[in-house]
């Protein structure tokens, strides 16, 4: 099953390589990964997506907790949560396609954020399945470049990941 694991880690050089190294050394797979600063400048928020059965995920979380630079870990998939990723996609947009692609973007509540004589760059925010659905709805021959942020996640309600 797909799990979104989110953690706060010390803003130390090499902290990310400890997380990535743990996954490669123990044969786990990182499918998506994002890291960025938070309101607290001493920590970064790292979110990753991995696959595994319950026992594997339990081991992954335990091993992440064992890393000295990792302050807090949560498996967001365990509770109610919001998942979002940002998709930027550059499409060949000429002739009749220009109108068609604009309509499709509207249907998915995506926005065209850059335009050239022959291309559109479209931005879409949603969970993984929404991005997948949008990409699947496109004529594959029109796709010039795809950039996905990977999943971000946050717990619903008053629960939060904090130190």
């Amino acid at each position: 099953m797909r799990h979104i694991i989110s953690m706060l880690m010390e803003n130390e050089s090499g902290a990310l390589s400890r997380v990535a190294g743990l996954f490669s050394a123990r044969g786990y797979n990182i499918q998506e990964l994002t890291v960025a600063p938070t309101e607290d400048e001493t920590v970064s928020r790292l979110t990753l997506v991995t696959e595994g059965n319950e026992q594997q995920i339990e081991q992954i979380v335990k091993h992440l907790n064992r890393l000295v630079d990792v302050v807090k870990v949560v498996d967001l998939t365990n509770g109610e949560h919001i998942e979002r990723e940002l998709l930027l996609i550059k499409l060949m947009a000429t002739g009749a396609h220009r109108e068609e692609l604009k309509r499709l973007a509207d249907i998915f509540r995506a926005q065209i954020v850059d335009v050239s004589a022959t291309t559109y760059t479209i931005q879409l925010v949603g969970n993984k399945s929404k991005s997948d659905a949008f990409i699947n709805a496109l004529d594959a021959s029109l796709i010039l470049e795809t950039v996905r942020s990977g999943a971000l996640g946050i717990m619903r309600g008053e629960k939060r990941l904090q130190i």
């Binding site: 026992q55 339990e58 081991q59 335990k62 907790n65 064992r66």
Partner: peptide, 11 residues
């Protein structure tokens, strides 16, 4: 002492 040792190889 190490939670990661528990149920690693044998449940």
């Amino acid at each position: 002492i190490d939670p990661a040792s528990i149920s690693k190889n044998v449940k």
